[in-house]
C-alpha cells in the first residue's frame, strides 16, 4: 500500500497522496506535505459522505472518482466502499499522467483488498463466521 501511494506522490506536481479508510483514518501517506495526512483524511471522508448523499438524492450510484479543481490546486479522489485514495496537486501541474496513475493505483489497491477478504461463505453460515472458525 505504501508503495502505491509513494508512486502516486512521485508524479510531477503531486504535493501529497493519501490512502485512508472510509472514516478518514490515514493508512498510508507520501509526498512533501505528509503532515496534512489526518486533516486531509478527515476532510476527504466528509466530502465522500456528502457526495454519496447528494448522489443518492439524484438517484445516482455513489461517485467512484471525484476531481475538484480550484484556483490554487486540484484534488483527485478515488472513492471505494472501504477506502479513499486522495492526491493533492499543484495548480498548473499536468493532469494527463495523474488520471491513469490514479486508476492504476486504485485497481492495485482493490486487488490487494480482494486478496485479503475472508473466504467465501460455507453452507449455512456467513463468510465472517467461516473466517472466525478457520482463524
Amino acid at each position: 500500500m505504501k508503495q502505491v501511494v509513494e508512486a502516486l506522490a512521485g508524479l510531477g506536481g503531486v504535493r501529497v497522496a493519501l490512502l485512508a479508510l472510509k472514516d478518514g483514518v490515514p493508512v498510508a501517506c507520501a509526498g512533501e506535505e505528509v503532515q496534512l495526512a489526518e486533516e486531509l483524511g478527515a476532510l476527504a471522508a466528509a466530502l465522500a459522505l456528502e457526495l454519496e448523499r447528494a448522489s443518492a438524492e439524484q438517484s445516482l450510484a455513489p461517485p467512484r472518482r471525484a476531481w475538484i479543481k480550484a484556483s490554487r490546486g486540484c484534488a483527485a479522489l478515488e472513492l471505494r466502499e472501504d477506502w479513499l485514495l486522495v492526491a493533492l496537486v499543484d495548480a498548473g501541474a499536468p493532469l494527463e499522467q495523474l488520471r491513469p496513475a490514479l486508476e492504476a493505483a486504485a485497481s492495485r489497491l482493490s486487488r490487494a483488498g480482494r486478496r485479503q477478504e475472508p473466504p467465501p461463505a460455507l453452507p449455512g453460515g456467513s463468510g465472517r463466521e467461516a473466517a472466525r472458525e478457520i482463524g
Binding site: 445516482l60 484556483s71 484534488a75
Partner: peptide
C-alpha cells in the same frame, strides 16, 4: 479548508 482557493470545476464519475 485545504487552501486550494476558489472552486472552478468538479467532475464526479459514477
Amino acid at each position: 479548508k485545504l487552501g486550494l482557493g476558489a472552486l472552478r470545476e468538479v467532475q464526479l464519475d459514477h
